[in-house]
C-alpha cells in the first residue's frame, strides 16, 4: 500500500514534469502564459498554506503579507540597494521566516484561534505599511524597475522563460512538501490535527511543530512573492491586500485540505475562474463566493477528492454490474 502511494507520486511528478516541459509548445498567446505563470505562483503559496491548514490544522489569514514581504524584500533590496538578485531572494525568505516566527510563537502557544486573529491583523498592518513607507516602498504608486532574475548570462526576461523558472519552483516546492509529508515530521503534523493531546503524549513537541510549519509556509509564500516581483518587475500594495489572503485560503479549501495535488488543482481552477470573471467587474466576487459555497456543500473534501471518490464509486458500480451483483 505504501509502496503504491509512492509509485503514484513518482507517476504524478513524472507527469507534472512532462506537462511543464511540453505545455509551452501549445500556448501561443502572451495572455495565457501570464495566466499559467500566475497559477504557478499561486500554487507555491497554496502548497505552503495547505501544509499549515490541511496537515497541521492551523489557519492563517495573513499569507498575502508573507507573499508581499517576499516581493518587497526582493524589490527594495535589488532596486534601492543594488543587492544581487538571488541572495536578495534568500534574504527575503529568511527575513519573512523570522517575522512569521515572531507572529507565530506567541499566538500558537495559546490554544484556539489566536493565529487567525494575529495573522489577520498582521496582514492588514503590512499592507498599510507598504503604502505608507514611501521612501522604501514607493508608496501606493508602487516600486518599478525590478530587474528580472538571471542565471549566469541567461536572463528570465520573457513569459516563456519565466514559465520554466516559476514552474521549476512549483515542482521543487511540491517535491519538498511531499518529502516532508512522507516523513516523521509530516506524520507528526497530521497527528497534531488529529489529536493534539495524543500527539504530545507520543513525544511530539506540538507547540514547536506548529510554529515551525507556520514559518515554513510563510517562506513558501515569500519565495513565490520574490518570483512574482522579478517576473512582473513592478509591485504595488494592491496585489497584497486582504483579498489575496482570502483567495489563497479558498484555493486550499477548493483543492482539498490536506491534498497536495489538490493544491495545484485549487490554484488552477480558482485562478482561471478569477480571470474568466474579470468581465463581470466587481460582481465577480459574488460568483467566486457562490462557487466556494457549492464546493463546501457538495465536495467538502475538495474538488480533487470529490471527483476521485465519484469516479471510484462509478467504477465500483460498473464492476459490480459486470459481475452481476447489482
Amino acid at each position: 500500500m505504501n509502496n503504491l502511494i509512492k509509485q503514484k507520486d513518482i507517476l504524478g511528478f513524472g507527469a507534472l514534469a512532462v506537462i511543464i516541459i511540453v505545455l509551452p509548445l501549445f500556448v501561443e498567446s502572451k495572455y495565457y502564459f501570464i495566466v499559467l505563470n500566475v497559477i504557478g505562483l499561486n500554487t507555491i503559496v497554496v502548497v505552503g498554506l495547505n501544509l499549515l491548514i490541511g496537515f497541521a490544522g492551523q489557519i492563517s489569514l495573513g499569507h498575502a503579507a508573507f507573499y508581499g514581504l517576499g516581493s518587497y524584500f526582493s524589490g527594495i533590496l535589488t532596486v534601492n540597494y543594488g543587492f544581487p538578485l538571488w541572495p536578495a531572494m534568500v534574504v527575503g525568505m529568511m527575513a519573512t521566516g523570522a517575522v512569521a516566527y515572531l507572529i507565530g510563537y506567541p499566538s500558537l502557544k495559546l490554544r484556539g484561534h489566536y493565529l487567525v486573529m494575529a495573522t489577520l491583523g498582521f496582514g492588514i498592518i503590512i499592507n498599510i505599511l507598504m503604502g505608507e513607507l514611501e521612501q522604501f516602498t514607493g508608496g501606493h504608486d508602487g516600486l518599478m524597475g525590478i530587474p528580472p532574475l538571471a542565471i549566469g548570462g541567461w536572463v528570465f526576461d520573457n513569459d516563456l522563460k519565466n514559465f520554466y523558472l516559476i514552474w521549476s519552483f512549483v515542482f521543487l516546492c511540491m517535491v519538498a512538501a511531499r518529502n516532508l509529508l512522507n516523513s516523521r515530521v509530516g506524520r507528526a503534523l497530521r497527528a497534531i490535527s488529529g489529536s493534539e493531546v495524543a500527539a504530545n503524549s507520543l513525544g511530539v513537541n506540538t507547540a514547536d511543530y506548529k510554529v515551525k510549519i507556520f514559518v515554513l509556509s510563510a517562506m513558501f509564500a515569500s519565495i513565490s512573492g520574490s518570483l512574482y516581483a522579478h517576473y512582473i518587475t513592478f509591485i504595488s500594495p494592491s496585489s497584497y491586500d486582504f483579498h489575496y489572503s482570502i483567495q489563497v485560503v479558498t484555493m486550499v479549501i477548493v483543492g482539498g485540505m490536506g491534498s497536495l495535488w489538490g493544491s495545484l488543482l485549487g490554484a488552477g481552477v480558482l485562478t482561471c475562474i478569477s480571470e474568466a470573471l474579470h468581465i463581470a467587474k466587481q460582481y465577480h466576487i459574488i460568483a467566486y463566493g457562490v462557487f466556494l459555497c457549492l464546493v463546501l456543500v457538495f465536495l467538502p473534501e475538495g474538488v480533487l477528492m470529490g471527483i476521485t471518490n465519484f469516479l471510484v464509486k462509478n467504477k465500483d458500480k460498473a464492476a459490480n454490474y459486470k459481475n452481476g451483483l447489482t
Binding site: 507528526a188 497530521r190 489529536s195 493531546v197 495524543a198 507520543l202 515551525k212 490536506g258
Partner: peptide, 25 residues
C-alpha cells in the same frame, strides 16, 4: 480514546515511533 482518526492504523503506530527518531524539518 484519542487515536488519529484521519490516519491509517499503520500511520498511527508510526507516529508512536516519533520519539525514537530524530530527523528535523
Amino acid at each position: 480514546i484519542q487515536v488519529f482518526q484521519n490516519m491509517t492504523v499503520r500511520e498511527n503506530i508510526m507516529v508512536g515511533l516519533h520519539s525514537r527518531s530524530h530527523s528535523g524539518f
